[in-house]
Design a protein around this nucleic acid. Structure first.
Lengths: 117, 117
DNA sequence: CCGTATCCCTTAGGATACTG
DNA sequence: CAGTATCCTAAGGGATACGG
């Protein structure tokens, strides 16, 4: 039986990765600038890195339109779409159990200090 | 709707984390040394860090037996068990689509170079 | 046996500025 | 507009050795 320490975690749950995928999945085709706005606080360098990686791994497609000014659009491939059940389940788990984590921390920390998730 | 850029990713899919959780879920109660063996290549320092974090977040419990030599046992809490559907789905996705990723890379890289996942 | 204590070092990622 | 090019830092790990 494979382990969830499997490559998938690295492929999909690296920094920014799931965020990009989720955004693209919900908005459909998006331009570079749009992604930047939606994924607040990501710098263009890092966003580009993640986009290239996701493209290489087959999760997104990149369409370059040689106009002036240039226009580039990114879109989820079917492979990325196939991740949806996983994302959905993660969101459901969050809604159901995130408070439990907060409470566990409060207990562990001695009931006092902060609990920034 | 929450995003999978949500805290869950950090909680569960950090380095080693899912691996530890998965191992504990499958073997039940385990000692520190057993975990070290099963999670090959993790150093005691880092393993301890992850175990503490998981304990703080309520995913595992730690039982210290003051014997000689000392014995410590870790175990999944119900909260960790509740992650199972997610892990299961990840494993299923791996089996179904990991080859697609490999193929996508081959394409992207020009059909030649390696494809270490 | 189950960790801590140090030290070191890579490397991902941020800030900033610039170009086709 | 959509990225590159550079520089920089800080933080997470790894190796190693020791302690209760």
């Amino acid at each position: 039986m494979a382990s969830p320490g499997s490559p998938v975690v690295e492929l999909v749950f690296g920094r920014w990765t799931s965020h990009v995928l989720w955004t693209l999945a919900n908005h459909g085709r998006m331009r570079f600038g749009e992604l930047r706005e939606h994924i607040s606080a990501v710098t263009p360098k890092v966003l580009t890195q993640r986009l290239r990686q996701l493209e290489r791994d087959g999760f997104i497609s990149r369409a370059y339109h040689p106009e002036m000014p240039p226009r580039v659009e990114y879109e989820c491939t079917p492979l990325a779409i196939s991740l949806r059940p996983i994302f959905t389940q993660i969101v459901e788990w969050s809604d159901a159990h995130l408070d439990d984590v907060r409470e566990a921390r409060r207990q562990f920390d001695g009931g006092v200090a902060a609990d920034q998730l």
